[in-house]
Amino acid sequence: MELTYWWILPLAVAAAAIGVLLHLRRRRPHHARLIAHGDRLTDLPEYQRALRNHRTRLALAVVMGAVFLAATATAAARPIHRTVEQPEVRNRDIVLCLDVSGSMTSTDAAIATVFQRLAKEFDGERIGMVIFDSSSVQLFPLTDDYDYAAEQLTQAKEALESGAGSFFDGTWNGEGSSLIGDGLASCVQSFPDTGTDTGTPDATGGAPQDTKRSRSVVLATDNFLSGEPVVTLDEAARMAAAKNVKVHALNPGDMDYGAQADQPGAQLRAATEHTGGSYFTLDSPESVPGIVQKVQETETNSYRAAPQSVIADSPAWPLSIALIAGTGMLVLGRRLEP
């Protein structure tokens, strides 16, 4: 508890002292009725009793007045409450990287649903979305406009559930289908450059801040590659690692035969673990929320911002004391002034 304008207090004391002095000085030529034989009244026991009560009330009024002045002066001096806080800053960048080949749509829809819900609770995070099949399409870049993201995710969810419409336009421009390496690479590319390797801060964000943001890709794919990708999954994973991007893979159809490393599921797992991410196999789309929860938990990379001192006015107690004293003075004043 401290006072913003502490100098008001001595000022108020001085003002009160001057007021009292002036009052005492002016009191001399007091306008009173001159009477004789005042003992006619003052000797009455009733008068003596009334005089005692009157004096008590006067003393009480003086005390109330002093309290009132002190309280209002304290309130005028702005008492503040200073606390030091370290606000938690949640600064994650998440890119949803969805394989929209025919076998994946239900999983994608589940992921979209989960993130549509999550987007409403986001505060500080950025979310982006990329869909790919044989070529990748960025639905929306990393953004903290959660309304927009939720809207896009809703559209995506509906399109993925119906499996038709122009939503998938542009995803078949390449050769083959499910070119996962290309897809993951374009997802990784949707993160801005860290600036650490180029040495120039980027114009939009301020590079030092971006380096602190955790980056993750939620990759939904079954890793059934058909065709010849420009970038292989391994290369894409190395790019991701270079850009500090963790890849969390959700595989709805892990149908590996044996534990060989060249099986699609095992490749995917290797790729994600290379980036520091995690790998999940899905039994049904219903388990998506739980997995996303796990991903979220591994990614609670919250930074503590610099300690801030928070100053809050706390005028409540002096003002309530002043209010009580003022009310008391009014009540007493009614009694004193007939």
């Binding site: 001159l34 009477i35 004789a36 034989h37 005042g38």
Partner: peptide, 17 residues
């Protein structure tokens, strides 16, 4: 008004009177 006894100089506050 408040009264003042010219004999003793004692005041008599009006509220009491």
């Amino acid at each position: 008004a408040d009264s003042m006894d010219v004999g003793t100089g004692a005041g008599i506050p009006l509220p009491l009177a």
